[in-house]
Design a binder for these strands. Sequence first.
DNA 1: CGCCTTTGACCAGCGC
DNA 2: GCGCTGGTCAAAGGCG
Length: 288
Amino acid sequence: MDTRVDTSLDLRINSFQNCNSSVMDLRRDRGGFAEKSQEVGTLQQDVGVSMEEFRRMSSENKKLTETLNVVLLGYNALHSQMINLAQGISSNEAIESRKRKFEDYIDLDFWKRPTESMKSRTSVAYFQVDPSDTSLVVKDGYQWRKYGQKVTRDNPSPRAYFKCSFAPSCPVKKKVQRSVDDPSLLVATYEGEHNHRCPPQGAKPPSVSPPISPSSMKPSNQNPVLDFVRCGFSNLAMKSKQETEVGTPPQFLVQEMVSSLTRDPNFTASLAEAISGAMLDRSRTQSW
DNA sequence: CGCCTTTGACCAGCGC
DNA sequence: GCGCTGGTCAAAGGCG
């Protein structure tokens, strides 16, 4: 056999094998390409979904920001009113203007709508305390008698049980427990409604059970949080103003706002946190 | 002395 | 029925 023919044949076989190998590589690449193509398609789809989600969240965020602004507007009006009342000023045009603007903005029916928690007369308030302070006492303007303490399963810190001690017949109870997430936060859960007037600042509970006059037994529609606003707010707000003329705002005011918001199922706790944070930030730039 | 807090016991509801 | 858990009671002691 001619060696030249053999060499040529070997070369061709070699060439064929190379070509075959290349074809296999190409086929593999093509498969890879198809795979990558599919991945790109999925990614495009994901990006589309993400963009849609992002647009939706942006829209929601915008709405929440608007709501926050409205709440802040109302808060500012109330705060101005409080300051002016404290200073003996009845009202002024600026306050009325802000109030009108607030009422124009806000859906009053929304805020007047009773929520489930309001129906059951249960509300929650948050109190900022020193994390090293182990006492479960919060100053909300009322007088309480502690009648029990328990360690619950979901929280290593004990839960304290209080009854309103200002009026013997008052059915209001509250539970106070340190927040499991934030040890500097005390969570107070109020149940029931007070059947008496707000105790004056520094008042001692009566040593003997006094007959409760009909006027003080007036059924109040107020929930504990409103009581807190009327009593704790009025008492402590003055104190805060005296103590911190240019300092921080009364934190309980912010916490109360948070509480009011969280009572509505449409507001998430995160929004409440955002609002309190925004208020605190805002207040740092304002003089009080 | 009276009110308050502490703390163990007790009770009721619920799930297994 | 039993155990677990949350809520309440009540006695004892502290404090002003």
